[in-house]
Amino acid sequence: MSDEFRISSELAEEMVQHCIEGRPNEACGMLGIKDGTVVKIFRMTNALRSPVRYRLDSTEQLAVHNTLYSEGWDWAAFHSHTHTEAYPSPTDIREKRDDVPYVIVSLATDPPEIRAFRIEKEDWAGDEGVVQEIPVTILP
């Protein structure tokens, strides 16, 4: 996808709602994207059930990938930070493995903040990465 990130206010609200319902733990999921615009929120299970860490449930992840494959959609990952800002933490950078946008929803502010990033790594398995913000446009 091009480096812009568009989401309707309705789907943004659905993503935020999933994050709120996941509290006190971090919530996570995937976003189906067509032509740079989010078309579907995949609410998924945080396999780590933790307030400070997340990992997409691997079985759900495959099922969503199969849907993305059959629909021909791009995707992004999203997760919440329950008490910190919507910016990749050192853990987010270290654990970043796939070359897709990472969206973070911060529940530390009211209303919650949504920001999107690319995390570029020279070595996909390495710990170091460079964060680049992708502008988020919320469509009416």
Partner: peptide
């Protein structure tokens, strides 16, 4: 599939 993981850690 690469795993998708991370977290605020704080």
């Amino acid at each position: 599939l690469p795993s998708v993981a991370g977290g605020s850690d704080r």
